[in-house]
Amino acid sequence: EVTIKANLIFANGSTQTAEFKGTFEKATSEAYAYADTLKKDNGEYTVDVADKGYTLNAKFAG
């Protein structure tokens, strides 16, 4: 089991951190699915991958 950390950075400057656990593939998929649920209210996002894929920095356009 691994933990994927998602740093969510919103256009207004606020941030949120979420963690997803499971296999690498499952946890990564859940992190992206969570970011997708936030698109409606926060706009499209881009992701910078860090820490060999164990940290995802998602920046929302607003």
Rank of each mutant, 00 (worst) to 15 (best):
Y34L: 08
Y32G: 00
A31Q: 00
A6T: 09
L38H: 13
A27T: 03
A18M: 15
S14V: 14
I9Q: 08
L8M: 13
E25P: 06
L38R: 06
T15I: 14
D48P: 01
K5D: 01
D51W: 02
Y32W: 08
Y32H: 06
E30C: 13
S14C: 15
I9T: 11
D48A: 11
S14G: 08
Y45N: 00
S29R: 14
S29L: 14
T3L: 09
T15L: 11
A18C: 15
F10Y: 06
F60S: 02
T15C: 15
F10K: 02
D41H: 12
A11F: 09
N57W: 10
A11L: 08
K26Q: 14
T23G: 06
G53H: 03
G13Q: 05
F20K: 00
V49M: 09
D48Q: 13
F60W: 05
D36Q: 07
T15Y: 12
T37E: 11
A11D: 06
L56T: 01
A31G: 02
N57E: 06
A31V: 08
Y34Q: 00
K52W: 13
A50H: 10
L56Q: 01
V49D: 04
A50S: 12
K59M: 12
D51V: 01
I9C: 11
K26W: 11
N42A: 11
D41S: 12
A50W: 10
V47A: 06
T23A: 07
A58I: 15
K39A: 12
K21W: 10
A27H: 02
K40Y: 10
N42I: 05
T3D: 02
K59L: 12
K39E: 05
N42G: 06
L56V: 08
T28E: 05
A6L: 15
T23Q: 07
K59A: 08
T46H: 10
L8H: 02
T3N: 05
F10E: 00
T55R: 03
T37W: 11
T15M: 14
T55L: 07
S29H: 11
K5G: 04
E1Q: 13
G43T: 01
F20C: 03
D48Y: 13
K59W: 14
F20P: 00
D36L: 06
G53L: 01
E25R: 08
V2Q: 04
G22R: 00
F24I: 08
E25I: 10
E1P: 10
D48H: 12
E25Q: 11
D36W: 02
E19S: 11
G62F: 08
A11E: 07
N7K: 08
D36S: 06
Y32R: 07
G22M: 02
F60V: 01
E25V: 09
N12Y: 06
A33V: 06
T46L: 08
T17N: 07
A27I: 03
V49W: 15
N42M: 12
S14A: 12
K21S: 10
N57Q: 06
A6C: 15
T46F: 09
T23R: 06
T3G: 03
Q16E: 12
G62W: 07
G43M: 03
G13R: 05
Y54V: 04
T28V: 12
K59F: 15
Y34P: 01
N42K: 10
A61L: 13
Y45K: 00
K52P: 03
Q16F: 14
A50Q: 13
T46N: 07
G13K: 06
A35S: 04
T28W: 15
K39F: 07
N42F: 15
I4C: 03
L8A: 05
D41T: 13
L38K: 08
K39C: 08
N42R: 11
A33W: 07
G13T: 05
F10M: 07
F60L: 00
I4D: 00
T46S: 10
F24W: 10
T17H: 11
Y54L: 13
G43F: 02
L8V: 08
D51I: 01
A58M: 15
Y54T: 06
L38I: 05
A58K: 03
F24A: 05
L8E: 00
A27S: 06
D36H: 10
Y34D: 00
A11C: 13
F60H: 00
T46G: 04
E19G: 04
K59D: 04
F10D: 00
V47T: 07
A35W: 14
Q16A: 12
K39Q: 07
T23I: 07
N57K: 06
A18F: 15
T3S: 08
V2A: 06
A11T: 08
K52H: 14
F20L: 00
E44F: 10
L56M: 07
G22T: 01
A18D: 03
V49E: 07
D51S: 03
F60G: 00
G22K: 01
I9P: 03
I4R: 02
K5E: 04
T3R: 07
F24Y: 10
K59T: 14
Y45V: 05
K52T: 07
Q16K: 11
A58R: 02
V49I: 13
A35N: 03
K52D: 15
V47E: 01
D48V: 14
A11I: 09
V47Y: 05
T15K: 12
D48R: 10
T37L: 13
T46M: 09
E1D: 11
D51L: 03
Y54W: 07
V2N: 03
K26N: 11
T17F: 11
G62K: 08
T37N: 11
